[in-house]
Design a binder for these strands. Structure first.
Length: 826
RNA sequence: GCCGGAGUGGUGAAAUGGUAGACACGACGGACUCAAAAUCCGUUGCCCUUAAAAGCGUGUCGGUUCAAGUCCGACCUCCGGUACCA
């Protein structure tokens, strides 16, 4: 099928023709070819929620633009696509519509695949994968059993949100204002045994390797660094008066230890529970803490509340007794669940002390000798120790070292490195996920499922009830099994994996998506990995990207991959917002791109998404503006369609001034657009630059007969070719057709990216801004090779400049060559 | 609360410390048309003005600099994340 260019722009005909060509030629199918440089471009795969939303269109257009650009630069480009198919929304849909999650998910995948194909993305569809497919999750199960053997997973009790009415575990998202979203019951916390991956064993490496990621945005690296949160401090113990217990605490400020006026412990701390045994008030206070949602944001914004436990800690240096308070801001899951409190030099401790009338003691003063009133506000800077006996006069570093030495010599404390990062809890009490491949045997304990019995298949023929509980938890035929070790009766684990598990290694599986001999095929992986360019939403800056980095290191240590980091370069696209909030299924404010594609076509949709804001900024959706992108495509179509391709080459020395100007603009545009695609990764300015070139060409064509004068035609042909090549990654369908209309053989996807001609960029004149006291007063047109003295001469001769300097004497003159002169006068 | 980011015309935005508002959208005026749509041409930061010229102007306040949207300090508002949404 071919498209007649003489007709008006019909996006349907154009897009059908281009997509048919790509399909018939298998244009985007790739394989490892060590003789060619590769480029692996990956966009974060979607959750199959039903339909694509604008965030997807934006994300995948960015990836496709980069992929097509790299292909034109001569790379063997891998761009795959798949579906992050396990997750909570499928279960919600199951309850709501009475349809099994698997059916719902696979139908959504089929629909969304069609939408992606409509948008003309250059994917190698042979590699498509869905994480809910046993061929995928079987390897994840296998890998988990390997980690089990290596001691990198363990089981421990951890808290969950519990809905006492529906008798089910709730995700944080399902707890609204402290109540279960379906039942409305006040949530409780409940402790259940869960599996953890030892990400903390890799904390130091995850931190150190951030330095290698120079292709990542600084903000993401900083966020990860803060999330890992390495600190050095002192761990030591308080004796508890009248008891054998010790109270272990960690502090990054041992220099403030003489300022301790109380200790604070978590409500779940063993000492707290013990103290509550014969104190009804305490028991009630502890009980109240169980009705708080398990989210850091909720806990950290709570009004700080506490209660004296009645127990007293013995200060290890002074022997003084200080009260032990139970406080709602101390979390059992962090460190030891207990802290020393120094209200004079810690804001949170200060607030708490003021509220409950606890003493505030100054032990640090500013190094510059100035006074601070610590009764009014905590002084949290490093300074000089006071009221600290033999430590008086020391600075932070000296005090730190001396106190560590003191405790270490007595054997009651030690210097430790602490991480904020906690081990990764991967157990979910949900149905729609990969079954955790563990069998619980009364005699042998937790036993991993042997490799020959993998995968543990998730039953897909299930029914949900309104409570939202996982159906496999009641399914005896799933649960009952025999122990692989002793052969006795045993029960299968019914928890499933956190869905972050699947998304932590899919990038590697794409290199060998159909490989059946193992989790990964080394030769494919070694050719394609690392991912050269990864693109996804900024909301994944921490969790997904940190878990993937961790998994990559786990796979490296298993010998599956050869590198240290999965993603060389990262582009974090901003949110697509609607009415000021993130467009998301859960908020119900999504805009379906389908209507836009139907009315305007994929090229317009792509152009609009790329033109309307730079990729890393959030984009406020509006329907207005799409029309403008469509009109530009129509104008481009008309301009090129009305042009008769010729074969006359540009004869640079023979050009007149107007022709030279067109040629200058063409090559300046190639230069700018190439930088925008390659280094800056901003596409809105690249498009604007091509629009400027369009405007220049139409202006030129309006005043010159481009079909008659041979060089007129030659410079216009050169400009039009550049425009089509430069826009090809963004609007590939239209450019596919226009390319051949310009007399070019072959498909534009196989054309070479244009190079600019430095000699075309040489200009004879420059505009120099003339300022007086920093304010623009004139623009001087001067020869390009003008000297500093000549610039000054011209500026001082200018009438407007003279006027603004009347009666003043020159104090200083600054000349920025080729740009600007600033005369400082007064 | 904590960590990270953003704030520029009516709107989306542009600007290696060096001419603020490129490129678009919208609006207004005009051409074409019986008329409308489409298309084409022009104007368009604010203020004063017939016009020219001047003045003001990048969330707020202060600072550094010959020069600040850009750098520094304090603050305000909004957005993302906050470990079971993905």
């Amino acid at each position: 099928m071919s498209v007649q260019i003489t007709e008006d722009y019909s996006h349907k005909d154009v897009e059908t023709a281009a997509q048919q060509y790509w399909r018939e030629h298998n244009s985007f199918r790739v394989s490892a070819d060590p003789s060619r440089p590769k480029f692996y471009c990956l966009s974060m795969f979607p959750y199959p929620s039903g339909r694509l939303h604008m965030g997807h269109v934006r994300n995948y257009t960015i990836g496709d633009v980069i992929s097509r650009f790299q292909r034109m630069r001569g790379k063997n480009v891998l761009q795959p696509m798949g579906f992050d198919a396990f997750g909570l929304p499928a279960e919600n849909a199951a309850i709501k519509n009475n349809v099994p999650p698997a059916k719902w998910t696979y139908e959504n995948i089929d629909y969304m695949r069609g939408q992606l194909q409509q948008l003309g993305y250059a994917y190698d569809w042979e590699r498509e994968l869905a994480t809910c497919h046993p061929d995928y999750y079987r390897w994840e199960q296998w890998f988990f059993t390997r980690l089990f053997e290596k001691g990198l997973v363990y089981k421990k009790e951890a808290e969950v949100n519990w809905d006492p009415v529906d008798q089910t575990v709730l995700a944080n998202e399902q707890v609204v204002d402290g109540k279960g979203w379906r039942s409305g019951a006040v949530v409780e916390r409940r402790k259940i045994p869960q599996w953890f991956l030892k990400i903390t064993a890799y904390a130091q490496e995850l931190l150190d390797d951030l330095d290698k990621l120079d292709g990542w945005p600084e903000r993401v690296r900083v966020m990860q660094q803060n999330w890992i949160g390495r600190s050095e401090g002192l761990e030591f113990q308080f004796d508890v008066a009248g008891r054998d217990d010790k109270l272990t605490v960690y502090t990054t400020r041992p220099d403030t230890i003489m300022g301790v006026t109380y200790c604070a412990i978590a409500a779940q701390h063993p000492l707290a529970l013990d103290a509550a045994k014969n104190n009804a008030g305490l028991a009630a206070f502890i009980k109240k803490q169980e009705n708080i949602k398990l989210a850091e944001a909720d806990m950290a914004t709570l009004e700080k509340e506490g209660m004296d436990s009645g127990l007293r800690a013995v200060h290890p240096l002074t022997g003084e007794e200080v009260p032990i308070w139970i406080a709602n801001f101390v979390l059992m899951s962090y460190g030891s669940g207990a802290v020393m409190s120094v209200p004079g030099h810690d804001e949170r401790d200060h607030e708490f002390a003021r509220k409950y009338g606890l003493p505030i003691k100054q032990v640090i003063k500013p190094a510059d000798g100035s006074d601070v009133d610590i009764q009014k506000a905590a002084y949290t800077e490093h300074g000089i120790l006071v009221n600290s006996r033999e430590f008086d006069g020391l600075n932070f570093e000296q005090a730190f070292a001396k106190l560590v030495a003191h405790f270490e010599s007595k054997g009651t404390g030690r210097k430790t490195v602490n991480f904020r990062l906690r081990d990764w809890g991967v157990s979910r009490q949900r149905y729609w996920g990969a079954p955790i491949p563990i069998i619980n045997c009364a005699a042998c304990g937790a036993v991993p499922v042997p490799e020959k019995d993998l995968p543990v298949l998730l039953p897909v023929d299930v029914e949900f009830d309104k409570s939202g509980g996982s159906p496999i938890k009641k399914m005896r035929e799933f649960i009952d099994c025999s122990c692989p070790k002793c052969g006795g009766k045993a029960e299968r684990e019914t928890d499933t994996f956190d869905t972050f598990m699947e998304s932590s290694w899919y990038y590697a599986r794409f290199a060998c998506a159909r490989y059946e001999g193992g989790m990964l095929n080394k030769s494919d992986v070694d050719y394609w990995l690392d991912v050269d360019q990864y693109i996804g939403g900024i909301e994944h800056a921490i969790l997904h990207l940190l878990y993937s980095r961790f998994f990559h290191k786990l796979m490296r240590d298993e010998g599956l991959v050869s590198t240290d980091e999965p993603f060389k370069r990262l582009l974090t696209q901003g949110m697509v917002l609607k009415d000021g909030a993130k467009m998301s299924k859960s908020l119900g404010n999504t805009v379906d791109p389908e209507a836009m594609i139907e009315k305007y076509g994929a090229d317009t949709a792509r152009l609009y998404m790329m033109f309307t804001s730079p990729p890393d900024q959030s984009l406020e959706w509006s329907d207005a503006g799409v029309d403008g992108s469509y009109r530009f495509l129509k104008r481009l179509w008309k301009l090129i369609g009305g042009f008769k391709a010729g074969s006359v080459k540009v004869d640079a020395p023979a050009l007149n001034d107007a022709q030279k100007d067109v040629r200058f603009k063409t090559h300046a545009t190639i230069k700018k657009v190439t930088t925008d695609y390659d280094q800056r990764q901003v596409f809105n300015t690249a498009i604007a630059a091509v629009m400027e070139l369009y405007n220049e060409v139409t202006k030129f064509a309006g005043g010159n007969d481009i079909q008659d004068g041979a060089q007129n035609q030659a410079v216009v042909q050169e400009a039009l070719e550049a425009m089509v090549l430069l826009l090809a990654p963004i609007v590939p369908h239209a450019c596919h057709v226009l390319w051949n209309h310009l007399g070019k053989q072959g498909a534009i996807i196989d054309a070479k990216w244009p190079a600019f001609d430095e000699s075309a960029l040489v200009q004879s004149k420059v505009n120099i801004a003339a300022q007086v006291n920093g304010k623009l007063r004139a623009v001087l047109e001067l020869p390009a090779d003008v000297t500093k003295e000549q610039v000054e001469q011209a500026a001082f001769a200018d009438e407007t400049v003279k006027k603004f300097m009347a009666g003043m004497s020159v104090k200083k003159v600054i000349v920025v060559p080729g740009k600007l002169i600033n005369i400082v006068a007064g």
